[in-house]
Design a protein around this nucleic acid. Sequence first.
RNA 1: GUCCCCUUCGUCUAACGGUUAGGACACCGGCUUUUCAAGCCGGCAAUACGGGUUCGAUUCCCGUAGGGGAUGCCA
Length: 575
Amino acid sequence: MASGGGARRHEVHAPIADGGFLRPRRRRSRPRNLRPGPGRSGGRTGSERYRRAHRQVDRNTQTPPPPSSEAGRNPRGQSMSDQKEIRVRFAPSPTGFLHVGGARTALFNWLYARKTGGKFILRIEDTDQERSTDEATAAILRGMEWLGLDWDEGPNAGGDCGPYFQSERLDIYRDAADKLRDTGALYPCYCTSDEIQARNVAKGEEAFAGYDNHCRELTAEQIATFEGEGRKPSWRLRTPDEGSTFWYDIIYDKREFPNDALTDRVAIKQDGFPTYNFAVVVDDHLMGISHCLRGDDHVSNTPFQILAYQALGWDIPKFGHMPMILGADRKRLSKRHGATSVEEFSKMGILPDAMVNYLALLGWSPGGSGDDVFARTELIKKFSLKKVNSAPAGFDYDKLNHINAQHLKRLEPKQRLALTLPLLQEQGWDVDPEWRVPASNTQGYTKLVLKTLGGRFSSLLRLPEQIGFFFTDDYALDEAAVAEHLGNDAARDRLGRLADACERDLPADEPATKEAFEDVMRATADASALEAGDIIHPARVALTGQTRSAGIFEVMWLIGTPRVVARLRRAAGAE
RNA sequence: GUCCCCUUCGUCUAACGGUUAGGACACCGGCUUUUCAAGCCGGCAAUACGGGUUCGAUUCCCGUAGGGGAUGCCA
């Protein structure tokens, strides 16, 4: 933990840190080498140059930007990024499936790009060799495709700023790191995390209290000793001890961190890979990212990243940190809350458009009053980063289901058919010419079946049970319904009479209309001095196996006379 | 421990410092109907707490409580 010393620190250690201003500016003699070369060890940790370099961008650490100008929200007090092309990105690390939090982050970036005519870039952050897998990358890509979040640059899409896998950009990070080593902004640290923790504990602090800047001013001898022991350094970014680092967050407005609370974080790991915090800066800059929109959990990484931009002498993008998504219990969303990967939602019968609609509503709102159901195009039209909330949002399955049902209901007949046909195939359902139904093929028949569903077409999962009895005689029977409506002689007798009437009064060789079925049904009821309902309810159970269905006369019309009669007789004969 | 953030009906949220605090989900009731949905109509339900500032605070400030995040050579 940086304490005391302040700016004087650099002076005090000048003999060590500043190897000599007469020295020719160091070339990258071993650009691929992440360790200090033998001749380098004295090297200039470069306090002087570091200070100078840092002063140039000090605007960003101490002086507030000009007040109340249009550019006032720009950390650098410039308006140029307002004219710059808008480029945003989603940068998942492939350590698992695409979960709702990541999907929402991706969505907001996508919406912003589509809204502004900017570019949406997908970058895979696979610098963690231990945890990154190809399967996870594939799963994330699948998830993105399912959601319909198409990217303009990235895997399978190409682009001028590739490669889009961080693991293929190691040279690039090395060059950037070399630049920083030259200025002394990066210095070697030989501590292991165990050692750091042990020191923290020894000082009476918590083990995870952070790095204590132990190796900040190592002498040449010390470095030589460590190297002699065969230790390899990580490279940490020197952070200032005074002042503060701040930015104007698109969502939170001003965010400020006192520099003395910042520790020197690792930029290049011992294995030569960059840390996330370093790679993200290099990539965002090189890929021309104008707006860095990400989860709220990155807020405390931002000062470090800003410092890295400054050390590199690069423009700083705008940052926007969106609230987290929590479970219904306000805890971080996890498996025990139910589905968390977008593919699970797909299996649950959620439409991509509905998922996108619901996710957009988590932390964002179009404002005003009215319906919350929006088509994708409406979402793009209405979306605004300014309306993004700063409070974490809880995930609500009820609302997701409602929005899904609404999207399902608004589908065109053609779209409904397209969703249903594969389902039919799965079940092996087909239309039989013997049925005497008003359609000659499965597709036409299904179209009619779906039409009867009307507003009942609200769940893909329930669909098979909703329409099964149209296609097969082997449909499920609701036992309670059977017991209640078909469990007595009177009801069975009525169904027998209805079957008789159907055979007697309906045309034998052609499909009967639903009106004809209704006439027969009502006439049968009248003849026995019954209410129509007394015969309709048992008939529904007999014909569909359920107490609830589409209008019964339409059902009969689509099932066809032979099957109607057979099912009625079967029920009538049941004991 | 330290740093940062958040807090409006149960949930998602709206509200230039002046509103009967609005909408959506869920829930309840009614209408409609051959059932179930759908649809339509109606109902229940909130500014976390305590102090300020102000003629007036959901809104601005401070504190408290609760929640979240960070504090990694994970991203």
